[in-house]
Amino acid sequence: MTSTTQEKSAGSFSKIWNAYGMLLIFAVIFVCSCLFIPNFATVVNMKGLGLAISMSGIVACGMLFCLAAGEIDLSVASVIACAGVVTAVVINMTQSVSVGILAGLGLGIAVGLINGFVIAKLKINSLITTLATMQIARGLGYIISDGKAVGITKEEFFELGYQDIFGVPLPIVFTIICIAIFGFLLSKTTYGRNTLAIGGNQEASRLAGINVDRTKLIIFVVSGFVSALAGVILAARMTSGQPMTSVGFELVAISACVLGGVSLNGGVAKISFIIAGVLILGTIENAMNLLNISPFAQYVVRGLILLIAVIFDKYKQKFIKS
């Protein structure tokens, strides 16, 4: 019957839209920017754009799993700053780049462990827990650095931020690897499926034999780890550990996830969502910079985009239902 085939094609359209709709919107924005914004479609600008979104790309990977499990991690920005400072201080102290990096990453894992333990084992709300560790990590960064940027003396470390592989800067390579790994984890492993199940219905997941506490612990440790990784890379790019960097960056990561279509209620997430979210946010910011829009106005624009995206998402779901 024609009506059923129509319904079927409508169903598959909404499926495709759900998975790739935001990527499509990114493509439109990107093409428009190329056509209408001077200096947008240049190699230099593309590299700059790539570097700008590499940070949010990495951090959003960890955040994706938190949101998918119905939790949230507000401590990521502080971990970025603190891990950068720790890396800088340890490199200067030991004159060893690798020890410094390990120390920075270790800091991220430690914060993640604390978050995970308090949230999973002690059953404290993740919003409150990570709000607390966010301030603790920020404060530790200031204490360790004495409130000032810590210049790094070993120049090999800076290669992490500037080295190219076939013309692609290392931070972008790291981001691509991260997204590939997390995409695989989310859709092809029990870890990812269990994360989604917990976000969908935590009690039912527990009664289905999923070790909810352990899964949540891992989610927060991983989120701490990737944030620290972003922090180390940022320190390399800035040639110093800066305790005041990335304030409010957790909101960028959450915005990117939500913009892409990750549900804050948990249970609904795809890696394509954060790719789209990160690319859209990054491209618009880049375009605004090229157009010389004031930073104050940029805040307004970013907020509006997020608001429109979530309203659009809600409306779309209603439209499909009726």
Binding site: R193, L196, A197, G200, N201, S205
Partner: peptide, 20 residues
Amino acid sequence: KEGIIPTATVGENINISARR
């Protein structure tokens, strides 16, 4: 409340435990 994972497919709900 305790049985189904509402955000997941029928297949996912079936396989969630035995897949290990």
